[in-house]
């Protein structure tokens, strides 16, 4: 029987030099984005914890940071920046678009104000 029939079987042998370089590069990006995300999270925390920054600024600010965080996570940790993820990108962004539009219009339409 074909030995390659089972896709979950462990790979055998050493990775090639090219693969090694690619993995190393990926490791670096992962680390950089991890540090960046820690930084973003702490910024969000401090902007709420500190008494100097008014809430009117802090709340939209951390919402923007949260959005940024989601995008970074999707692209660097969930590998959406790699080749062959065109469909994933298209679907996630159109889903986000539909959801954002829906939530925005719901916020406008459910309120007591009439448009």
């Amino acid at each position: 029987m074909d030995p390659h029939a089972d896709p979950s079987a462990p790979l055998q042998g050493e990775p090639s030099n090219q693969t090694k370089r690619k993995l190393k590069r990926e490791m670096r990006t992962q680390l950089v984005s991890f540090v960046l995300m820690i930084f973003i999270t702490s910024m969000a925390f401090f902007s709420i914890a500190s008494d100097v920054i008014p809430n009117g600024f802090a709340i939209p600010f951390i919402l923007i940071l949260a959005g940024l965080q989601v995008v970074l996570q999707l692209y660097f940790f969930m590998h959406m920046n790699e080749k062959g993820t065109g469909w994933v990108n298209a679907m996630i962004w159109s889903g986000l678009f539909v959801a954002a539009l829906t939530v925005a219009s719901l916020m406008l339409l459910i309120g007591v104000v009439k448009y």
Partner: peptide
């Protein structure tokens, strides 16, 4: 198809602009 749901609700009173 995702942009038109409120046409089922014209008489609910969501307002003339909407």
């Amino acid at each position: 198809g995702f942009m038109v749901w409120a046409h089922h609700m014209f008489t609910v009173g969501i307002g003339p602009v909407a």
